[in-house]
Computed example of a mutant assay.
Amino acid sequence: MAWTDERVELLKKLWAEGLSASQIAGRLGGVTRNAVIGKVHRLGLSGRATSSRSSAPRRGAITRHGKIERRRLSARRGNVALKRLTRRNTIRRPAPVEELVIPLHERATILTLKESMCRWPIGDPTEEEFHFCGRKKDGTVPYCEHHARMAYQPVQARRREKRFASG
Results as ranks from 00 to 15, higher is better:
M1K: 04
A2N: 12
A2K: 13
T4Q: 10
E6Q: 07
E6N: 07
V8C: 05
K13D: 05
A16H: 14
A16G: 13
G18I: 10
Q23T: 06
I24Q: 03
G26K: 07
L28A: 03
G29V: 06
G29A: 14
G30D: 04
V31A: 06
T32D: 03
R33M: 12
R33L: 07
I37L: 14
K39L: 03
V40K: 00
R42V: 13
L43A: 05
G44L: 01
S52D: 11
A61H: 08
I62Q: 02
G66T: 03
R71D: 13
R72D: 07
R72V: 08
N79E: 14
V80P: 08
L82P: 02
L85V: 09
N89Q: 08
R93H: 07
P96M: 00
V97N: 01
E98R: 15
L100Q: 13
L104E: 14
E106M: 14
A108T: 07
T109K: 02
L113C: 13
S116K: 10
M117K: 07
M117N: 15
D124E: 04
E128D: 14
E129A: 15
E129F: 12
F132P: 02
F132E: 02
P142Y: 00
Y143A: 06
C144E: 09
P154M: 05
Q156R: 12
R159H: 08
K162N: 12
F164T: 14
